[in-house]
């Protein structure tokens, strides 16, 4: 790092001079980028806990600022790329609409579908686990299904269940079912022979073994499926709205706003979707840490 540190500023300055000759407007952009990069380089070298938090934050903020500056300097029209401040303005101005869309898509469509899909997949997994034959048939099929473009069933399910949230929930059920199923079945077999033998020496029956050994041991796998499914649920609910929805919902607003070239509104909805997705994931991940406190990766 130290050997690199000396030629690096010289090279950076040289690049700036060259760029100034070609395109003067790009200079502040590149200068800011280099400054932030240097700051991060310095922080990364220090390797403290706060540095590890600060570096990605600085990176993110820098990208936002550069985005803003680029839009201003090059006068990028709002129908191509709105500036972050414009998006923030649209976001705050339309809070009520965005909240309505959030409730329609996330609370009604995604959450209900997620609950139904995960619970039924869990039930089927428990059933399949009792029969080795069923298990060895369902696992490859489920793993295969999990790689398929299941969002494609959206037009069919919208046709069957109507335009409201029921059809979105149905798409979500179809999307989350197989990942949760495969993960749960995989998790339920994730015990060692020694552990199972111990349960047998205790005279534990099927249910005792299941609740005291195999289900807890399966939890890392189960939560892997549950976490993946959080994002899948949101996608299913949003994409299904492209095929028909009431006049509310994230996907509905995205497709309508794209048609009106109101890209600040589209970006606002993307912010909503991103926040909802990360929050949902974060909540499940937090529950996971509580449930699987015993796992090596949680005992740092």
């Amino acid at each position: 790092m130290t050997a690199l540190a000396r030629p690096a500023p010289i090279a950076a300055a040289l690049a700036l001079v060259l760029l100034a000759l070609v395109s003067p407007r790009a200079v502040p952009i590149l200068a800011l980028w280099l400054a932030a990069f240097a700051l991060n380089l310095w922080l990364a070298g220090r390797d403290t806990r706060s540095a590890r938090m600060a570096v990605p934050a600085i990176f993110g903020v820098t990208v936002l600022i550069l985005w803003e500056i680029t839009v201003w300097l090059y006068a990028v029209p709002g129908v191509i790329l709105p500036a972050p401040t414009a998006i923030a303005a649209a976001f705050t101005a339309n809070l009520r609409t965005l909240w309505g869309d959030f409730v329609q898509t996330f609370v009604k469509g995604a959450l209900s579908g997620y609950a139904i899909g995960c619970l039924s997949a869990f039930a089927v997994a428990l059933l399949a686990d009792r029969f080795a034959f069923l298990k060895s048939g369902l696992l490859p099929v489920g793993n295969f299904m999990a790689a398929l473009p299941i969002v494609g069933t959206a037009p069919i399910l919208v046709m069957w269940f109507g335009f409201d949230w029921q059809s979105k929930a149905a798409v979500v059920v179809a999307m989350v079912f197989f990942p949760v199923l495969v993960n749960t079945v995989a998790g339920l077999t994730d015990t060692q022979a020694m552990q199972r033998d111990l349960m047998r020496t205790y005279g534990a029956g099927y249910w005792a073994t299941l609740t005291k050994l195999r289900l807890p041991a399966a939890m890392p796998f189960v939560f892997n499926g549950l976490k993946i499914s959080t994002t899948l649920a949101l996608i299913g609910a949003i994409v299904a709205e492209f095929f028909g929805s009431p006049i509310q919902g994230v996907g509905f607003r995205i497709s309508v706003s794209v048609g009106q070239l109101a890209l600040d509104m589209v970006w606002s909805e993307i912010v909503v979707a991103a926040l909802a997705g990360s929050l949902f994931y974060g909540i499940i991940a937090a529950i996971e840490t509580r449930v699987t406190f015993w796992h090596p990766s949680n005992r740092g």
Binding site: F37, N40, L41, L43, A44, A51, R52, V55, P56, I58, F59, G60, V79, I80, L81, V151, T230, T231, L234, I235, I238, V239, F242, V250, G251, I254, S255, V258, L261, L263, V266, W267, E269, I270, A273, A274, G277, S278, F280, Y281
Partner: peptide, 28 residues
Amino acid sequence: VMDLSVMPWAIVSQTVPIIAIAPMIIVV
């Protein structure tokens, strides 16, 4: 420095329903 600055965002981006922006990308 790249690891510290990019990797967290690469992971967070996996939890974002990226495909929702597909229509916008096409139109833009």
